[in-house]
């Protein structure tokens, strides 16, 4: 409990087929803080969250969540650990045949023996926290994208988890929904006394709430620190990512022959 870090990853290796996704990645997530992992699309950020949740087994490396070695846990212990983790999926992942209320009630019904009226109170409390108490009877198909994500957030916090993981929470959201989500993430982290781990490539939004940012590329951490520090990072590659420039160390062009050869018909 005294460990200052809730999640510790040491020397993580993972490959999918021939592609190396993680090649010796190490990072720590401090308790009570909002930590963000950023990186270009396809850098395995979602995979990392799944490895932390024990859904995917890494090839090598050590993952510790709340002091427990995820790789060494049996199936039952793993499911027990997950009750302490709330995850918000990119696609919200609400159960399509259940109402907003029932979606939030789902983890409570599965993991507690609470009487029906306590469940009702808890669910309404969680829905109220995301501002959707009035939408409790709507089906996921009747919710807008932003609302669906907030219901999913209410579901993720239903069991008051220690660790909250957000997978690309800002993609596909309009500016208002984005603002709502940002303030919710910030507020909930404090209110629940939880630790948040956020995966995103939306640099400005992320920088505005994160306490610490890791930048991941080519399967490794290439930069870390407080958001402000990264703007003046010595690596040109990180500066390109933070400033969002289209060309730089990460090239605009996919590797190819000189254009002139293709035009003249002598290309591959």
């Amino acid at each position: 409990m005294d460990d200052p870090n809730l999640v510790e990853i040491k020397d993580l290796h993972f490959r999918r087929g021939a592609r190396v996704v993680f090649d010796g990645l190490s990072l720590t997530v401090p308790r009570g803080k909002i930590t963000a992992i950023m990186g270009p699309s396809g850098s395995g950020k979602t995979t990392l969250l799944r490895i932390i949740g024990g859904q995917i087994k890494p090839d090598a490396g050590e993952i510790r969540v709340a002091g427990r070695d995820v790789g060494g846990l049996g199936r039952a212990e793993l499911f027990e650990l997950r009750e302490d983790i709330g995850m918000l999926f990119q696609s919200s992942a609400l159960f399509t045949d259940l109402t907003a209320f029932e979606n939030v009630a789902f983890p409570l019904r599965e993991h507690t023996d609470l009487p029906e009226d306590s469940i009702r109170d808890l669910v309404l409390m969680k829905l109220n926290a995301v501002g959707l108490r009035g939408a409790r009877d709507l089906l996921p198909s009747q919710l807008s994208g932003g609302m669906a994500r907030r219901v999913a957030l209410a579901r993720a916090i239903a069991l008051d988890p220690q660790l909250l993981m957000y997978d690309e929470p800002f993609t596909g959201q309009d500016p208002i929904a984005m603002g709502v989500l940002l303030s919710l993430i910030k507020k909930l982290n404090g209110a629940l006394n939880a630790t948040s781990l956020l995966v995103s490539h939306d640099i400005h939004e992320t920088a505005s709430i994160a306490d610490k940012i890791y930048i991941v590329a080519d399967g490794k951490v290439v930069g870390e620190g407080h958001p402000d520090v990264l703007h003046d990072h010595p690596s040109s590659r990180i500066r390109q990512f933070v400033a969002g420039r289209p060309d730089g160390p990460v090239p605009f062009h996919y590797p190819a022959d000189e254009f002139v050869y293709d035009v003249l018909g002598s290309g591959r």
Binding site: G53, F79, L81, R82, Q90, T96, P107
Partner: peptide, 18 residues
């Protein structure tokens, strides 16, 4: 298949439900 594609199965697993 739809539940898998929309990550409903994954989210269930992450909620500790098999």
């Amino acid at each position: 298949g739809l539940m898998k594609t929309t990550e409903q199965l994954s989210s269930m697993e992450m909620m500790g439900v098999d």
